[in-house]
Simulated assay, not measured.
Amino acid sequence: MAGENATNVSKQRIGWIDAAKGLTIILVVMEHTTFGVQNAIGHLPLVFGAIAEFAKPFRMPLFFLVAGLFAYKALFGDWRKFVDGKIVHFAYFYVLWSVIQIGIKIIVPNQGAWTVTYVDLLMIPIQPFAVLWFIYALSLFFITLRLLRNARPFFIFLFAIALYFTRLDTGWMLIDEFAWRFVWFVAGVYGARQIFEIADWARAQPMKGVALALLLLACVASVVFSRLIDIRALELLMGFAGGAAAVMLVSVLAAKGFAGPLTFVGKHSLYIFLSFFLPMAATRILMVKLGFENGDLITLVATAMAVISPIIAYRLVEKTPLSFFYVRPDAFRLTGRKRTVRPDIVMAAGGD
């Protein structure tokens, strides 16, 4: 009985992570859908526009915090496995889906916010395309911390904070996003114990956990909609506040058994991140052409299709020659594949 209880506690302790990933991917898809709808109908959807603005301070911070939670072992593990799992793994999906996205935009022009040409294909190694920047950035985060693994975490965190406050705006997405986001990955790696403790406390004290989470989210909303979020220090604090609130809420939901849909989405996060753009754009374009004018309705339907369709697509191709779209083939591996594991890009990123 004691062993069963320990197992249940262990499952609960990490069960919220997939739910957090699910929340993150939904927020990312929703944001891109919202602004795509704005470009299509000429105005920002009222409800989803407000949600996207509210979630902006902690949406990507939450992603990189969770990505760093299980990174410590990779940073100090075997070098060959590190290169395979954190460089080759990311490079494969980044290059493949960059070519696919750019190719689609070249073949079907005038459906995006900017002109795409063959030059964008040549720029893939140095200038990430659209949402795929996060794959490139995540690999660079791992490489950077691997190289700095013998440095004291305190100094690494100071370095990350300093980068954050530089407000780099070079126009080179890779450099700018690295400077803006690196602090969150560092916080996830070296603050993993504290993050798990926050989740544990919220699960043990659900009423207090939910109350504190809602208070933190209220603070985020106040800062965002008062425009104080433009103050860099407040932006940083709201990122931590929103991230902590999300961790507490999903931990409580997972412990109570209410996080099933978020967990399911989180377990398929890679597939969604890679290919949500196509069903999202197709649904939006179709609904606008059919005469739908309610921006929030278009955003809701397009977001749902963008989240669900990639999962269906993966299920359809997973046992076919087309599985290479979502599963890295053995030909692109440096180490043997011991067992079948979903190629999860967020949690322990890269050990498929």
Rank of each mutant, 00 (worst) to 15 (best):
L286V: 09
I231D: 07
G239P: 04
L249A: 12
K267Y: 09
V327F: 03
I231R: 07
S269C: 04
I311C: 12
G239L: 00
G295R: 00
G257Q: 09
M248K: 07
D230P: 03
L300T: 11
F276M: 10
A282G: 11
A306E: 03
V247A: 06
I298F: 03
V250C: 13
I308P: 02
K319R: 13
A304L: 13
A313E: 10
A281M: 13
I312G: 12
L286A: 14
A244W: 01
A281S: 13
I312D: 09
F276H: 15
A304V: 07
Y271E: 10
A255I: 00
K319C: 06
I272K: 11
Y326G: 02
K319N: 13
M287V: 12
L286T: 12
L286F: 14
E293L: 07
K319P: 06
A313P: 09
L270G: 13
L316K: 12
F240P: 00
F273T: 03
L316M: 15
N294C: 05
V252Y: 05
M305D: 06
F292A: 11
L290H: 03
M238D: 07
L316N: 07
G260M: 12
L262T: 04
A304F: 14
S251A: 14
I285E: 14
S309E: 05
V317N: 12
A304H: 02
K256D: 15
